[in-house]
């Protein structure tokens, strides 16, 4: 059973907030989705196969691993264009408490 509280917690763990009305829409979407997924759980043969994470076998072995050669591409000067706050060539954020 999906409740708004569960959805809010999920959003919170994803580091964002949503409008109240959006949670209503989301609840409805979840209801439909979970119903569909429930049907899937009952499909014949579903239990007997391994989940697929790649579209097909790529057959690669350790020869394809990258050679250990160092090559620096960028430095802080390059990064600056997209950084809002920095000091001493490091990105600055409010103090992070462990």
């Amino acid at each position: 059973m999906i409740t708004k509280d569960i959805l809010k917690k999920l959003a919170s763990n994803l580091m964002f907030e949503m409008e109240e009305e959006e949670y209503d829409t989301l609840e409805k979407e979840f209801a439909i989705f979970l119903k569909q997924m429930d049907l899937i759980a009952h499909i014949k043969d579903v239990d007997g196969v391994e989940p697929m994470t790649f579209p097909f076998e790529l057959d690669i072995n350790d020869h394809f691993l990258r050679s250990d050669v160092a090559n620096n591409e960028i430095n802080f000067d390059d990064m600056k264009v997209n950084v809002k706050d920095y000091e001493e060539n490091k990105i600055k954020v409010p103090k992070v408490v462990e």
Partner: peptide, 10 residues
């Protein structure tokens, strides 16, 4: 399960 459906279809 979604991954399993994917495999069955493929």
């Amino acid at each position: 399960n979604a991954g399993r459906i994917r495999r069955l279809i493929v």
